[in-house]
Structures are given as structure tokens and as C-alpha cells.
């Protein structure tokens, strides 16, 4: 059984390269059992989306200071 440290690294790698079959199996055997890693995956995907928005200047702006 893979541990979360290994799986979270692979989840990060998956954003940058395709996982090989062995890695993929390892991740997908683990995810259904681990909400922490499922949340981690959504979080790094959110970071990716944030980067895409920032790249296009699609970020909410407005007068700073009314927070």
C-alpha cells in the first residue's frame, strides 16, 4: 500500500507528465481510500487553474482596500 507522501508526489507529477501504468495504478488504488489525497489532488488542480487565470489576466481586481 502506497503512502500519502508517495501518492501526493505522484499527484503533483501527474500535472506535468503522464504517469506510467504502475504509478497510475498505485495512485488509483490509493485515492478511493484516502480523502486527504483526494483533497490534495483537487487543491493542486486549483493551483493550476489559478495559474491559468493569472496568465490571462483574468483575476478579480478592484480598488484595493475594501476588504
Amino acid at each position: 500500500m502506497a503512502n500519502c507522501k508517495t501518492v501526493s508526489k505522484l499527484l503533483s507529477d501527474a500535472l506535468d507528465r503522464p504517469l506510467n501504468a504502475q504509478e497510475w495504478l498505485l495512485v488509483h488504488a490509493h485515492l478511493p481510500l484516502c480523502s486527504g489525497c483526494r483533497n490534495f489532488r483537487r487543491q493542486v488542480q486549483t493551483l493550476r487553474q489559478a495559474g491559468e487565470r493569472l496568465r490571462d489576466g483574468d483575476v478579480p481586481t478592484g480598488p484595493s482596500g475594501h476588504d
Partner: peptide, 29 residues
């Protein structure tokens, strides 16, 4: 992580709000 490399309980990632909602908030940025 704990000694066996699993998320330590208090540090286990919790769900964030939906990305669409989150990324529309200035506070997130």
C-alpha cells in the same frame, strides 16, 4: 506526515471551496 508517510491527522488536507467560487474571490488572490 506521520512515521509511515500518511497524512498526520491534524494536517490531513481538508476540502477547499469549489474552484469557480474560490478563484472569483479577491481574498483568495
Amino acid at each position: 506526515f506521520n512515521a509511515s508517510g500518511h497524512w498526520d491527522k491534524p494536517a490531513k488536507p481538508q476540502a477547499w471551496p469549489d474552484p469557480q467560487t474560490l478563484l472569483a474571490q479577491r481574498q483568495f488572490w
